Computed example of a mutant assay.
Amino acid sequence: MRASGVYTFHREMSPVYHQDFKEWELTDMVVWVTGASSGIGEELAYQLSKLGISLVLSARRVHELERVKRKCLENGNLKEKDILILPLDLTNRSSHEMATKAVLQEFGRIDILVNNGGVSQRALCVDTSLDVFKELIELNYLGTVSLTKCVLPHMIERKQGKIVTVNSMVGIIAAPLSTGYCASKHALRGFFNTLRSELATYPGITISNICPGPVQSNIVKNALTEEVTKPTGSTADQSYKMATSRCVRLMLVAMANDLKEVWISDQPFLLMIYLWQYMPTLAWWLTNKAAKRRIENFKSGVDADSSYFRSVKKKHD
């Protein structure tokens, strides 16, 4: 489904996207994935490893990256020399230039940068320390911008490359309990949409914003709360969320086809993006109505995500 240059994927499209996946468009490329130690980044590494590419895996947890690498070698089509483990802290911006040079030294080029690293948030704005907002901007926004700026000159010199950023549905809409996270994702969308316009004279360089809805991962478990040192640690049910493997498969469709922006979600969550795009007044009314219940659940100690989203999905089904 396409709307105003924006591609959207949902469950009803499953018979179609296999036909749209030109996997040969991604073979023989050097792909650098941040946040590769878990969730979407980890699954992306597994699916890319089957396509005959060179893979750079980055995150802060080296032992988890090694685990992902081993699984890529066991189940993919890559050899030891095809995978580079490159520890990276997105908040340590002074290290990004050296990291970029390390990739170029190892493989000679960077064809695709996948900006996937980041952290979410679950807390009321009024209770949240300013340090949490700072951490979200430093990691999700400035860290991603910094690494992109280090890689971009290389792509401009070659006049080709793909910059793929895993944003979020909440980079488009609003989500209560995630003020800092939403702000950082809105900032990313604005940055990369503007960067795309600045690169209009380089048609070989493509910018893709990937905006998933609820996806099965540890993003809520690792989300910040009202304090930086206090993650949620949530182990709530995620059955209502899209499977990570399917989300990543659709991401590969977007990457292979150089799509500018992609909304990936099951219904009814995808509908909310459409409402925000075309019927904002109604979207505000529904968001405010949903916010009251979500905040009530949160204050009473009930998992705000699973309790609310399960009920919404049940009504839709």
Rank of each mutant, 00 (worst) to 15 (best):
L195S: 03
Q160R: 15
Y240Q: 02
L57T: 03
T194D: 04
G5I: 04
M242V: 05
R2F: 13
T91C: 11
V56D: 05
N297D: 14
T229I: 10
H10A: 13
H316Y: 15
L78Y: 02
V56A: 03
I85A: 06
H96V: 07
L142V: 02
G301V: 00
T128W: 07
L44T: 10
I83L: 11
L44R: 06
R109A: 08
T34E: 06
S178Q: 15
K69L: 08
L78W: 04
T91S: 15
V228M: 00
A304D: 12
V164S: 00
Y240D: 06
E261M: 13
V31A: 08
L177N: 00
G76A: 02
Y308P: 01
S184H: 08
V228Y: 04
V151A: 01
V33D: 08
Q19E: 14
A254K: 04
E106G: 04
H154N: 03
E106S: 11
L271D: 12
M169S: 07
V166M: 09
K71M: 12
N193E: 14
I53S: 09
N75Q: 15
V56T: 01
N167H: 02
R70F: 10
D303K: 04
I173V: 15
L44N: 00
E135H: 14
I137H: 10
A291M: 02
T144A: 07
K101H: 11
V119F: 04
F191E: 08
L78G: 03
Q105T: 11
S217M: 06
L84C: 05
I110L: 00
L286Y: 02
G108N: 07
M272T: 10
E138V: 04
C182S: 10
H18E: 14
Y181L: 06
